[in-house]
């Protein structure tokens, strides 16, 4: 996005606050504390390296610009380092707000394919980073420990439990949505 692009005024007399209410309910209860000082963006390592702007996303959310927030690829550049949360003078907890907006984005079908794959791995193997090659078992043997650790890699009943939980919460359906918007 460049300054040469034509911008139109954001004319909002009464912002639709349904998105803000959604965010508050989903894990970002303090979003309305924000007075736009920008401490978050000034502290943000992702902000220094990419066009991810925490303050901008929060402002858009407060204006009710839901679609702009949830469809933005930058939303996924936050590493959740919590530096902004530790420095925010208004206790907005910006990291939690970003995570809450991500929850809304995912519920509306905005999900990156690699993230979906990682989530599926947990349902299939019990682990986001599974023991999926013999070479990993060999590595374990080389350091002098049992080839298969006593986690879900060894106990398939643990994976069954995870599948049941994902079914109960609807997570299995959430990540089964294949089409990216």
């Amino acid at each position: 996005m460049t300054s040469a692009e034509e911008k139109t005024a954001i004319e909002i007399d009464t912002p639709d606050d349904s998105f803000v209410q959604m965010i508050k309910k989903t894990g970002g209860p303090n979003i309305q504390n924000c007075y736009q000082c920008g401490t978050c963006s000034g502290s943000c390592p992702a902000g220094a390296l990419t066009n991810f702007l925490v303050r901008g996303i929060i402002r858009k959310a407060l204006l009710g610009l839901k679609e702009q927030c949830i469809s933005s690829p930058e939303l996924w550049y936050c590493t959740t380092c919590y530096t902004c949360t530790d420095r925010c003078p208004q206790d907005v907890k910006p990291t939690d707000v970003i995570k809450a907006i991500r929850n809304v984005a995912v519920a509306e079908g905005y999900m990156l394919a690699p993230h979906q794959k990682t989530a599926l791995k947990v349902l299939e193997t019990g682990h986001a980073v599974p023991l999926d090659k013999e070479s990993w078992e060999n590595l374990r043997e080389k350091v002098g420990i049992e080839r298969i650790p006593p986690n879900a890699s060894k106990y398939s009943e643990a994976i069954e439990e995870i599948k049941k939980l994902a079914k109960k919460t609807g997570f299995d359906k959430l990540i089964a949505v294949k089409e990216e918007k």
Binding site: G126, H127, A152
Partner: peptide, 25 residues
């Protein structure tokens, strides 16, 4: 040993996808 423990689950992916599922696992 913590027999049958699974992924924590990954706070970045699961916490960003669905807070309830993250907390449940």
């Amino acid at each position: 040993d913590m027999d049958g423990a699974t992924c924590c689950p990954a706070p970045g992916v699961f916490g960003s996808f669905d807070r309830i599922t993250w907390a449940t696992i």
